[in-house]
Nucleic acid binder design. Structure first.
Lengths: 123, 123
DNA sequence: TCCAAACTTGAGCCGACACTAAAGTAGGCT
DNA sequence: AGCCTACTTTAGTGTCGGCTCAAGTTTGGA
């Protein structure tokens, strides 16, 4: 499966966050969610097949952790998301879309409205 | 819509690549694909509402370009994908999954097998 | 050997979403 | 005004993927 599609799933991103700098056993991970153990196990399977997590077996338990090197290209993205920055961008974009005709400047000089600066100084 | 989900769609990523460092009109973009103009227009709408592209109107034409600042967190990822690196990682991961029991080392020291180095020296 | 714990896997269901086809909108031209 | 071009939007359809529930697998211990 396409690595990006794998990471696009919110639950899987949350899993990655849980095992980002500490390994956890599957059951432990599942406890953090309100879905079935089976569902989480399936997510872990997807992450595993994509090479984004690593497993260590100890008896019947399986300890998962994020495969940081493999995730390197996504690291910037993940950290921004976990910092809650990107959601705000989406909100901004929808506002800009809504007040479409009212602000001609947003169309001719929009980099200023939606660019890097927008992430810092928000209402 | 979640920015990551927006980018996860392969066609939309291809669109982003087309308008990465040059603006293009919608019809021009649509010509690069084998789907309907309507379909591409919908993709552009999604990208627009997510704030990932910018539009400039000129008469009946609409010129799209990538909103580079907004895409900054994804830039590393996109470039890796466009360089075709990430697909190979996925292949590798599946191999590792398949030859599961044959290589105990891959489980105990897998960062070396699937990490940064794996992207360079491949069979 | 039998059982329980910790996971994985399979079948089936349901909602989300990308596509087509067709209708709608808006600017420029004669 | 009327039409054409360039695009967007809507309605309807098929597919894909995430979920539940249930069955299967593997390991450790009584």
């Amino acid at each position: 499966m396409d690595p990006v599609q794998v990471i696009a799933e919110p639950r899987r991103r949350e899993i990655l966050r849980l095992i980002w700098d500490a390994e956890r056993q599957a059951g432990d991970i599942a406890d953090h969610f309100e879905v079935t153990f089976g569902a989480i196990s399936q997510h872990l399977g997807v992450l595993r097949r994509a090479g984004l997590v690593l497993v260590r077996r100890d008896g019947t338990r399986r300890y998962y952790r994020a495969n940081r090197p493999a995730l390197a290209p996504f690291e910037a993205m993940l950290e921004q998301m976990w910092a809650g920055q990107l959601d705000r961008l989406a909100e901004l974009a929808e506002l800009a879309e809504a007040g479409d005709r009212t602000s001609a400047a947003a169309r001719t000089e929009p980099a200023k409205a939606l660019g890097r600066t927008a992430l810092e100084d928000l209402p």
